[in-house]
Structure formats: structure tokens, C-alpha cells
Design a protein around this nucleic acid. Structure first.
Lengths: 146, 146
DNA sequence: TTCGATGCAAAGCGTTTGCATACTG
DNA sequence: CAGTATGCAAACGCTTTGCATCGAA
């Protein structure tokens, strides 16, 4: 866990005139330690174990908050629901997604990003954000298929 | 409109033991002539004008059918609902999406696709499909912003 | 003590489905 | 005729919201 994620949240909250709460801290900690690409439901279930009183809505609200605070990225994959991932400061990456087992592999590729900028420039477009997903079969599923 | 799209649908239906209906043909024709990236609702509204009797569900069901028949691509953008686009046989492309006015610009870039294959190969991954979306400001909106 | 945050349940919203009826093959 | 397709409305699944209560500042 990044050493000052909780602080980063506190600062954001303070700056917005919002309040720090135990629930928000609990959710943030579980979120960070739980691994990537969680749906709201997955996070809710994980948070619920140590903190049974927590409500579904609070998880949703906190996740949106984390996204606003720059601590989480919100992504919709093709499975229809929104997943969140903890956002380390400047670590941008894209995804390989196995259509059979659901595995999600991350990758980065600077050359692709550079080409994206070329495309944008040619279209007088200013890129703020992008999303690249490759759907297919992961190594394991390819083996099993044979 | 591609000259034999209706035939292509008929063939698919026949092959699957399904039936050709006037609604399916009407929806397909409106879909093709209506331009790209339609949501089910947009298509429903457009089909409704000339064919008021048509039902919402039929549009949804037909759209899924067209996707199965290979005549349409189903995509979820970040605005939360599914959009469909008419699929010319081998015309693959990606999207620039303006976060301000909603404009969708298409592009193709072979070098990016080649690099995607490299990434996949390194991860023992077999790509079946991919999705690249660049979100940002289009030329018009950049001008207006100043 | 004020006003934002929480938890619950209900509402929203796009999409899907059950069912009686209409129509294709 | 048999069985699929349609249209309507109700159901769905994920997400958001209203409201009374709780708790941070």
C-alpha cells in the first residue's frame, strides 16, 4: 500500500469541505490491499468481512469519491459492470482480457501511446484519456483448448 | 447500403432455422441507413417513425441478432449504454470520442494493430477482438474552449 | 450543534424476459 | 398446423437516491 494513500484521501476531503470517516478509511484500505479490477460488489463483500456493518451504498459512494480524488480509475469492460482499480500516480496501463476465464493482464506500451498521439494530432484532437483492451484467450486457456 | 445486407441476414436466419420477418428487414434497413454508433433507443425512435407499430423489445432482439449474424458490432462506450454499428466486412476501426460534444471520429492505424499483436505474443495471448478509444476534445470543442 | 455521511430500502435506467397473440414456413 | 416472432408490460441487474439517523468538526 502506498504510504500516504489515506493521507491523500484526507487532503482531498479537507480541500472539498468533506469529512473523513472510519468507513471511508476502511474501504480505502481494503480497496488498496485487495488487488486490482474490483467491481463494487467484490469490494463490498471484502469490506463486509472485517466490517460487517458497512452498506452497499457507502461502497459505491466511496468508490466514486476515490475516483474524484484521483486514487482510483473507473473502467467499464464488456462484462457490463464497472470495475475500479487503484491508481498509482503515473502508472498508466492497458489490458488483455481473457474471454474464457476472465483473467485480466496489464501491459504498457509506449510506442502504441506515441502512435495514438499521432492519430489524435492528425484529427485535431486533444487526448485526455484512453482505453485499450485486447480481448481473446490467455496462455492457459489456449493450452486447455487443445 | 451494402447491396446484399438483407440477403446476408436472410441466409443467416435460414441457416439457423429462424424466420425472416418484415420487422427484421425494416429494422435492418433503418439501421444501415441511419449512420453509425446508434444506441438501441436511437434506433427504436428512428424505426418508429416509418413503422409505428414496432416494439422496443423487437429492436433489442434484432440488434442482438444482427450482431450474431455478423452485420453489427456491439460496443460499450463510457456513457453507459451499448451502441451498435453496422459492420462492413473487413473494415476495422477505432474511435476518438469527444468528452464535450459527444462526437465520435473513427480511425484506423495498422501500426498500432501490429504493436498490439506484439504485446499479445509476449503474453502468450491470442487476440480475438480489440477496442481502442481515445477520449478527449475534438477540434471544434478545442476552438470553442479558447 | 451543524451539516455532511451512513444504512436501508426504494427508485432509476438500460436491457431482458414471460406470455398471449400474430405470423412464417 | 407447428413453432418462431412480436408487442406489451413486468422483471432484471447494476447503480443511484431519498430519508431518517448518526457522527465528525
Amino acid at each position: 500500500m502506498r504510504k500516504n494513500a489515506v493521507e491523500q484521501l484526507s487532503e482531498y476531503l479537507a480541500g472539498q469541505g468533506l469529512r473523513s470517516t472510519t468507513q471511508r478509511d476502511q474501504i480505502l484500505q481494503v480497496f488498496i490491499s485487495a488487488g486490482r479490477h474490483l467491481s463494487a460488489e467484490e469490494l463490498y463483500l471484502r469490506v463486509k468481512k472485517p466490517h460487517p456493518g458497512i452498506g452497499y451504498a457507502t461502497v459505491y459512494r466511496t468508490l466514486k469519491l476515490l475516483a474524484e480524488a484521483g486514487l482510483a480509475d473507473e473502467r467499464r469492460f464488456e462484462d457490463g459492470f464497472t470495475r475500479y482499480e487503484y491508481k498509482a500516480s503515473d502508472d498508466h496501463h492497458d489490458h488483455l482480457i481473457c474471454t474464457k476465464c476472465g483473467a485480466i493482464i496489464e501491459f504498457e506500451n509506449e510506442r502504441i501511446e506515441a502512435l495514438q498521439q499521432d492519430v489524435a494530432r492528425k484529427n485535431h484532437f486533444l487526448v485526455q484519456n484512453h482505453k485499450l483492451e485486447l480481448y481473446g484467450l490467455c496462455g492457459d486457456c489456449r493450452k486447455k483448448n487443445r
